[in-house]
Structure formats: C-alpha cells, structure tokens
Design a protein around this nucleic acid. Structure first.
Lengths: 318, 318
DNA sequence: GTTGAAAGCGTAACTGGTAACGTAATTAGT
DNA sequence: ACTAATTACGTTACCAGTTACGCTTTCAAC
C-alpha cells in the first residue's frame, strides 16, 4: 500500500520548497555574476514596485499573496541596500508607502536581462512537467476554500464509521444488550418504569410476537452491539418507534440515524402510514435526530404509560 | 508581461508549503479529536518505522528525503512521548537504530483509521486539481538533475548576449575603434610594434585594398564597437587572421568566437584553403578560442614581422 | 599497524516564512 | 461628539526545515 505516497502530499510542500530554495540559491549566484547587489527574495516586491509604482506595505502583501511582516522584512533589507525609500501617506498616516529609490529605478535595466535569462531557464525546466503550477496551486487553494480539508476529513471519518456499523434484525443472543443499552441511558436522566422492564426483559413476547420488530447496530469488526431500536405494533395498527438507545461511547457513528432509517424502511415496506414516538423535551440531540428523520410534533397522548414522556411526534409515510 | 507570474514560480514553494502547513494544522486537530497523542509531523518517520521495522537515523532520512537532523528531532520528540526506543547497532556503534516502542506499536491500530480519513480527504481535495503532484515534482527534479537550473540560466544568458551582438563589415566610421581595441590589449602585455601601428592606422590600404577584410562586433542597442578581427591577404594567396581583439569589459559575449566564425565563413566562401595566425603562448584564452575554431599549431614562420609572436597556427578548410 | 578519509550522528545556528500581539490612526455607529 | 470597531504596521516569538560543524567509529590504502 502506498499510503505514504498519498499522504506524502503533506510533505510535498517541503519538497517543493526545497526545490525552489535551491533554484533561489542559483538565482542569487546569477545576480552576483552579473555584478548586481540583489537577491531573488527581493524580486516579487521589487518587481511590484517597479510596475505598480509606490504602494503601502499591506497592499503589496495582499497582491503578492504573502504576509505583511514578510514584505516588511524584505523592504527593510532593500532599504538597507538603498533600493527603496518610504514615507507616510499624508492622507492616512497609518500607511507607509514604499517606492523604489533612484538607485532602485536605475537598477531595473540591469536586472531585466537577468530576469529574462531566469525566465527562459525556468520555462525550459518546467516545459517537461507541462504543468501550470500556479494554476494548479490556485485551484487547490480554491477547492480547499470551498470545503476545507478539515471538513473533508470529518466527512471521510463519518463515512468510514458508518461503514463500520451494520444494522441487524433481532437475535436472542443480544437480548441482554437490548436491556442494558436502554437501561443505561434511561437511568442517567430518569428512573426505570414498570413498563420499561416489562418490554426490555421480554422483547420476543412484548414486541416481536405482537407483530413488531427489533434492530441492533453491531460493530462489524468487534461484533459489539452499540445501539438498538424497536418498532412496536399496538392496537388498531398503531405503530411506534420505541426503545431507541445508543451506547454513549459509540457517539459519532450516526448509529441512531442508521437505526431510524432501517426502521422507516421497514415501515414503508409494510405500508404503514404513520409511525409515532414519545420522548422527553430534555433530550435535545434525540429530538434533532427525530426531526432529521422527518418526525413532526403532535399533541401528547394522555394515555401514555411513561411518566417521562412529554413530547409526541409522528412521521407520515403517505 | 507577466514575468512576475513566471518568476513567481521561484516563490511558489513557499506558497505550497504554506498550504500544506495549514493542512498539517488540520491534521493535528484530527488526531486530537481521535484522542491520540500524535502530530502530523511524526507521520512519515512513524509510518516508516511501522512498515520497515527498526532502522538507523540516516537510512530513514534518506528514504524519506529529509535531512538527518530532522529525523533526529522528530525521533527525540517521539521518544519523549514514549513512542520509539533506540539502541546502538552492536555491529556498527555509529548507528543508532530506532524502533517503535510497545506503546508505539499499540498506537498503530488507532492511527490507521485517521490516516485513512486523511488520505480520503486529500484525494478529494486533489481530485479537483487533476494533477499528480508527486509525479510532476519528480519530473521537475529529474529535469533539473539533467541540466541544472544554473546551467540553464547561463546558457540562456549566453544566447541572449549573442543575440545582442552583430558582426558587421568594415566601415570607416569605426577606424578609430579598430586601432583602440587592438592597442588596448597589446599594451597590457606587450609593446606596440612598428608593424602594428602601420596596419592599425591604415586598415583600408593595408588590409582591404590588398584584398583582405575587416569585421567589427557591434552591440546592437548601444551601437558600441566591442571587438574586431581582420583577414589579411599576403603574397601567394597567403591568408592570415590578424588583429583579433575584444574589449575587456565585453567578455562573456562570445565575441571572439563570433568574429572568428564570420571570418572563417568568408574564407570558405572565397575558397581559401588555409588560414594562418600568429600569437603568443601567454595568451591562453585566445589559444583556446583558436583551437575551438579548428586551428592547429604549426611551426613558426621565421619571417614574422612581430617580436611578440611565438606560436603559429593554421586552419585547413579543405 | 598506521593513518587519513568517510560515515553516522548530535548540536547549533540560520532561513523563509507564519501567527499573535500591541500601538497608532481611521472609520462607523450611536 | 464620543465610543467602538477596524485597519495598517512593527515587533516578537515560533515553526519546519535546512546547512555547518564537530565528535566518534569504521573502512581502506599503504
């Protein structure tokens, strides 16, 4: 596997920098050979001043795509060599306007041929690669701006995690997990009620035998059960989504969503027209998930067997 | 002209490095989010150790394409975090062999998914740019290896300079330059002789009227005369290349060569079968030029009118 | 067996660049 | 008219990476 080649992209910057640094060193030699007191580092700023006239520091920085301290440094060096002069902008005293000195301007005609030589050499060098480096870099920067690398990574992580989970139908092996997962979250905020115990301890008789269904979210690799949900069939074809729970350590795997989607798919397959659920307004993340799945708030059912429920939602599958 | 765009290539490395640095920063966040005590900087070294087993410092550096102090630094940091261990190679005590510690090896399985996410994100990011960066970089590096940037620049300079010079036929306007240029170099090493003055002061009668020719090298832009040479026709169709001189400040423009080539072309056109020249063994650069033009040493002519000449050369144009 | 060159490594200093912070000047909102 | 936010700049500290140099060990050639 050549992950290192792909991830090597991250090291690409250093490598290209090293390459350009060695080119810069050669460039320095050329100026020296031409008897010019000039270094490649100054080029962009110098050239900018030569062609755009006097300009304040940050404007140069922005146009060249470097930070203003860098321009400042370069300007200081060029100043020390008498190539630029600066003065405060009288109309805005924050601005320090840089300009080429007489010496600087006089140097242009000596520099130009050297630049031409370098340009010719560079073009020859790059001709083989047949790539417009600048365009490519700009595109990459743009596509990073569009969706940042960090977001892309997070998206990739999410996708990977989803692939790590499988949603499976009820299996008696996991009866205990069904109980545990639900007890775990209920007890952190509420108390277990009589109705809870009855259903959680006897899913086969209380849910499946009545025409309902139970699903588990299982971690493919470890086989661990990380979440559950059930579709409960009541009287008069009244269907409810109940007992949704996810292990707290398994957050971030979109397990609730996957379970919900599995349940809804089954509901559609059966031609059920409405699925209800009851929950509590304190459970904000859960409420968000239910809304994401398409559930809407409806008036509370006064006959609910659960004390903790103060919110009722419904999903129409017309 | 977008010279700045072309020469901006030289500064491109920094820009790409900046981009990758920001990616690295995002990477650091990802490790943090995964609860891992790890930084992107360690990746290459860590990955190398994980996949190639224990290795000495410089071997890692070479394989990763970084300097050995860098590997050393990274190793020190990883060591401080207990991820690597090191020991001297008993068979070569100069070598310090690095290896992942137990903790380091245990960390691999936690790191791998993060790496996969990063890889996926990078691929997405680069997909837009549609460029195999690594290949391009490698090609560029290779073509630089073939002919270094410096050499390319020097070649470009030479070509440019040659284009700046034109070789022109004799013109009375430049009679003085013909004298000056030759006197200048003769007097630095020798004395002007009687025969020198006669020829240099009267090129029309002494050279051209006798069936010879004089050329000048003129700087196109300034119009300055920078070098001269003459073809002298003596008795019995005996032709000599004489009075070759180049202004010292015009060295590096291949002027001697261009003048020589012009003279030889004319000699060929005339069907001359041998051109001679006389010079002095002290003039090494001149001797090299003559050899480059094809001249070979021949016995000295005892009747030479010049005291300074102790070398005679001939070019056969069969 | 010397002895001089070369290899492996560690340390230090340098480099091109950044972000962060403080200050002064300007502009905008009330 | 006054305060709050913003802009422009300089300074500082830092970062990833380098080259330069010195020390120890090994190797190769007499």
């Amino acid at each position: 596997m050549d992950l290192i080649r792909d991830l090597g992209l991250l090291a690409l910057g250093s490598r290209l920098k090293r390459l350009t640094a060695s080119l810069m060193a050669d460039g320095a030699l050329l100026y020296q050979e031409a008897g010019l007191d000039f270094t490649p580092k100054w080029f962009t700023t110098f050239y900018y001043l030569a062609h755009h006239g006097p300009a304040p520091v940050t404007q140069i920085a922005n146009h060249l795509g470097v930070s203003h301290p860098m321009v400042n440094k370069v300007a200081a060096e060029m100043d020390a060599h008498g190539l630029v002069v600066s003065q405060k902008d009288p109309s805005d005293k924050r601005r320090r306007v840089l300009a080429l000195s007489d010496k600087g301007r006089a140097m242009i005609k000596d520099l130009e041929p050297v630049w031409q030589d370098i340009q010719a050499a560079l073009q020859g060098l790059v001709a083989d690669a047949k790539v417009d480096w600048i365009e490519v870099l700009e595109k990459t920067e743009a596509s990073q701006k569009e969706q940042s690398f960090l977001e892309r990574c997070r998206a990739a992580r999410k996708a990977r995690r989803i692939r790590e989970i499988e949603i499976i139908a009820y299996d008696p092996t996991y009866r205990e997990a069904f109980y545990d997962i639900n007890r775990e979250w209920v007890e952190t905020l509420f108390e277990m009620e009589e109705e809870d115990r009855k259903v959680l301890q006897n899913p086969e008789s209380e849910i499946i035998a009545k025409g309902g269904e139970v699903w588990f979210a299982r971690h493919r690799e470890s086989g661990e059960i990380l979440g559950t949900v059930a579709l409960h069939k009541g009287d008069h074809d009244h269907y409810e989504m109940i007992k949704m729970g996810v292990r707290p350590e398994a957050r971030g795997y979109s397990i609730g969503e996957q379970l919900g989607v599995a349940l809804i798919e089954e509901a559609k397959r059966r031609g059920i027209d409405t699925v209800y659920l009851e929950t509590n307004s304190k459970l904000t993340p859960a409420l968000n998930l239910y809304r994401k799945l398409g559930f809407k708030s409806v008036p509370l059912d006064p006959n609910t067997p659960f004390a903790r429920c103060n919110v009722r939602m419904a999903l129409a599958l017309a």
